[in-house]
Amino acid sequence: MFSTFANPHRFMALSKWLLPVFAGLGIIMLATGWIWAIFFVPEEQYQGATARIMYIHVPAAMVSMAAYATMAVGSLLYLTLKHTLADVAAKSAAPTAAALSFICLITGALWGRPTWGTYWIWDARLTSMLFQLFLILGYMALRSAFQREQDAARAGAILCLVGAVNLPIIKFSVDWWNTLHQPAGFITMSGSSLAGEFFWPLLYNLFAMMFVFGALLMAAMRADIQNRQYEAKLARLNRSGS
């Protein structure tokens, strides 16, 4: 099945239909999801309306991790199978992954101010999300430093995989450090299982964010492939013209 969709032409034909579907679903679901979360979900008992930021914060965090996983899988497939489309996927997922990590950190800071009393806390999750953002920014900076696309692809893939191997270690070490330095004294959303009235809108928003990511990924991949086709055609024309 994988090789069926690894063909760029087949990908272009398929994504031509899937992209508008994903984009439409993403926009509609995100809009309705936010309206649901802001106007219809009951207020949280302790945090009041502040907890509504969760419906952006949590989907952004989860989808940014999924986006990094997309980059890692794409990099692995590129290194092992040398398939260009895998590299295009990894490259195209990076900006969205970075943006979602950033949104997660910003909303986390804005949420932290009223609940923890400070914008930034060296909470284990915030800290490891920050390092994930640094890894993605490093990936993008490394790629842009190379002239040739193949060099950029291989270097980026190696870095992404090294980062993917290290990310669990970083998360573990940050957790270990955090529990060691500050005993839990703040409210976390983890552990406590969310009641249904909060759970369903969150799940809905998560799917909305997934569709948005899928649409952005496909749009970026399509642009990249079209750019490559254009470059190839230009090179052909230059050769025949001279």
Partner: peptide, 27 residues
Amino acid sequence: ALTAGLRRSGPLVALLVLPLFVPVVIF
């Protein structure tokens, strides 16, 4: 190794490897 082919790679290398140093600094 990743930046060996590049000119003036200093700041770039720092951005690449500093996140990998996190566990070492903590432990």
